[in-house]
C-alpha cells in the first residue's frame, strides 16, 4: 500500500504549492509514490463538514500532510486542527506557516483596522464572511508540526527532500548555516558608509565580474539580512537574491531558533559601524516573522523593538 498524502493551504499565496509544482518531472515521480487523499489545488477533494463550525471538521487520514500559510481566521484554524488530527506526520511548509510570513505584517494593526481600511470608500464591511482571529499566527502557535520547512517559497528540492525523507521513515536535517555563510561576496569587516543606504540604485561592483568580486552588500550599507537569516535558498550555490545583486530580506526566517532578526541585524550593523537610527521603518525587518508576538499592534503590548530601546 502506498503512503497517503494530504495538502492544505491557509493564509498564504500558493507560492509554496508552485514551488512544489516547480519540481517538474520529480513531482510526478513523487506523486506516483503516494496516494493523494486530500489536495484541493490539484484534486476534487471537498470538506465533508463545513469549515468554521467548531473544531469538528474531518479530513481523510494521511501518513504525511503538508500545510502552508499562517492562520488568520476561525476557518483556517479549523482546517489546521483537522490536518493535525488526520496527519501522522505534519510538515509546516514555508515561512508563513513557520513564522507568519509577509501576511503577518498585518499584526502591526488590529484585524478590525485592516478590514476597515481595506473596505473604506467601498461601502459597508462584509458580514457574511469567516470570522478573523485577533492576529496572524504561525502554525506552531496552534498545533505542533513534526517538521518546519521555511522559505518564501522553500527551494523545490528542499521540499522534495523533506517529503522523501518522511516517506523513507526519516526526518530530514535542516541546514544551520546563515545566508551570509553561504554567500561568496567579498567581506572586509567594515561598512563603507555610516548611514544605512536604501535601495535606490544598484549595488556597487561590476555586474559582469564574478559574484565573489562584489563587496558584501551589507558592507555597502544596504540592509542585507544575510547574517541573521537561515540559509539554504541557493542550495549549494550562492543565495538567490544575491545572485542578481539584490540584498537578502530574510525570507527563510531567523537563523537562530527563536531569534529576533530586527535586534540581531541592529547588532550586526553596530558592529559594522552603521548608525542604526538611519534605518527607515526598522520594524519591516520583521516582515517575514511577524507571528510569535514579534509584530504587535500599537494598541497592544509593547513591541520587542521598543522594549529593547530602539529609538
Amino acid at each position: 500500500m502506498k503512503p497517503t498524502f494530504a495538502c492544505e493551504w491557509l493564509h498564504s499565496c500558493a507560492g509554496c504549492e508552485i514551488a512544489l509544482v516547480d519540481l517538474g518531472e520529480v513531482l510526478l515521480e513523487l506523486l506516483a509514490r503516494v496516494e493523494i487523499v486530500h489536495f484541493p489545488l490539484l484534486m476534487d477533494n471537498k470538506y465533508s463538514s463545513r469549515a468554521g463550525e467548531g473544531d469538528g471538521m474531518v479530513l481523510p487520514a494521511a501518513d504525511l500532510g503538508l500545510v502552508s500559510g499562517g492562520v488568520a481566521s476561525e476557518e483556517q484554524r479549523a482546517i489546521l486542527l483537522a490536518m493535525r488530527r488526520s496527519c501522522r506526520t505534519l510538515i509546516a511548509l514555508g515561512t508563513c506557516a513557520t513564522h507568519g510570513g509577509i501576511p503577518a505584517l498585518a499584526n502591526e494593526r488590529s484585524q478590525e483596522a485592516v478590514r476597515a481600511g481595506v473596505f473604506a470608500d467601498c461601502g459597508p464591511l462584509p458580514t457574511q464572511v469567516p470570522d478573523c482571529l485577533d492576529r496572524v499566527y504561525a502554525v506552531d502557535e496552534l498545533v505542533q508540526p513534526d517538521l518546519c520547512v521555511p522559505g518564501c517559497p522553500p527551494r523545490p528540492e528542499t521540499i522534495a527532500a523533506a517529503i522523501t525523507a518522511v516517506l523513507d521513515g526519516e526526518l530530514p536535517v535542516t541546514p544551520a548555516k546563515s545566508v551570509c555563510e553561504t554567500c561568496p561576496a567579498r567581506r572586509e569587516g567594515r561598512a563603507t558608509t555610516r548611514t544605512a543606504r536604501r535601495f535606490f540604485d544598484n549595488a556597487d561592483g561590476n555586474p559582469d565580474e564574478e559574484l565573489g568580486q562584489m563587496r558584501c552588500l551589507l558592507e555597502q550599507g544596504l540592509m542585507c539580512m544575510g547574517p541573521v537569516t537561515a540559509g539554504g535558498c541557493g542550495g549549494s550555490g550562492p543565495p538567490l537574491c544575491v545572485r542578481v545583486r539584490v540584498p537578502c530580506r530574510g525570507c527563510y526566517g531567523p537563523v537562530r531558533a527563536g531569534g529576533n532578526p530586527l535586534l540581531d541585524l541592529m547588532n550586526a550593523l553596530a558592529g559594522q559601524g552603521v548608525d542604526r537610527r538611519s534605518v527607515v521603518d526598522r520594524r519591516s525587518l520583521l516582515r517575514f516573522c511577524g507571528a510569535h508576538g514579534l509584530l504587535r499592534s500599537a494598541a497592544g503590548p509593547r513591541s520587542p523593538e521598543r522594549f529593547h530601546g530602539g529609538s
Binding site: H11, E75, P130
Partner: peptide, 21 residues
C-alpha cells in the same frame, strides 16, 4: 474567503521595498 490586507499593511513602508512585499 480570505483577506490578507496588503493595501493596509504596506502603509508606512519604504516604497522601494514594495515590489518585494
Amino acid at each position: 474567503t480570505s483577506l490578507r490586507g496588503f493595501e493596509q499593511f504596506v502603509i508606512g513602508r519604504p516604497a522601494e521595498e514594495l515590489p518585494r512585499i
